[in-house]
Computed example of a mutant assay.
Amino acid sequence: MRCTVLAASVLLAGSVQAQDVIEEGKRLFTREAVPLCAVCHTLREAGASGQVGPDLDELRPDAARVEKAMRNGIGQMPANTNLKDAQIRLLANYVASVAGK
Rank of each mutant, 00 (worst) to 15 (best):
A33T: 11
E32Q: 12
A7G: 12
A13Q: 15
F29I: 01
A92W: 02
N93Y: 02
L36Y: 02
E58N: 08
Y94F: 14
L43K: 00
R44D: 11
L12Y: 10
R65A: 14
K26Q: 13
E24C: 13
L6D: 14
L11M: 15
G50C: 05
A33Y: 02
S15V: 13
Q76P: 07
E24W: 07
L43G: 00
C37I: 01
A38F: 01
I22D: 13
A63V: 01
C40L: 08
G50H: 03
P78R: 04
L12F: 10
A63L: 02
Q19Y: 07
E23L: 13
T42N: 07
L43T: 00
V66D: 01
D20Q: 14
K68W: 10
G47R: 07
S49F: 14
L6G: 05
V52Q: 03
A86Y: 05
Q51I: 09
N72H: 11
V16T: 11
G14E: 14
Q17M: 11
A46D: 06
R2G: 07
G100A: 10
C40M: 08
K101D: 07
R71E: 10
S49I: 02
R71V: 07
A18L: 11
C40R: 04
V98I: 05
S9G: 03
L6V: 14
S9P: 00
A38V: 06
T42V: 09
L12S: 14
G14A: 13
T4C: 13
G100N: 09
I74C: 02
I74M: 11
E24P: 00
N82L: 11
G53R: 04
S49D: 12
L90S: 03
E45V: 13
K101H: 12
L56I: 04
A46W: 02
A7N: 15
G50S: 06
D62T: 04
F29V: 00
N72Y: 08
N80A: 09
L59W: 13
C40Y: 04
P61G: 08
K101R: 15
G47S: 09
A69P: 01
Q17F: 11
L6F: 15
L90M: 11
G73W: 07
M77K: 05
R60K: 15
G50T: 03
V98F: 03
A92E: 05
N82E: 08
T4E: 15
Y94L: 04
G100T: 06
L6I: 15
K84G: 06
C3Q: 15
A13P: 00
C40W: 09
G53L: 07
N93L: 11
E67Y: 01
L90A: 04
K84Y: 08
F29G: 00
I88S: 03
A63R: 10
G50D: 05
E45W: 02
L91P: 06
C3A: 15
Q51G: 05
Q19N: 12
L83A: 04
A92L: 06
T42K: 15
A64Q: 12
P35R: 05
L43H: 00
T30F: 01
E45F: 12
A92G: 05
D20S: 13
D85Y: 02
V21Q: 12
E58L: 13
Q19T: 13
G75P: 04
E23V: 12
S15P: 01
A69T: 10
R2F: 14
V34A: 10
G47C: 10
I74P: 00
E67T: 00
E58I: 06
A13D: 15
D55G: 02
G53P: 03
P35I: 05
R89V: 08
R89L: 12
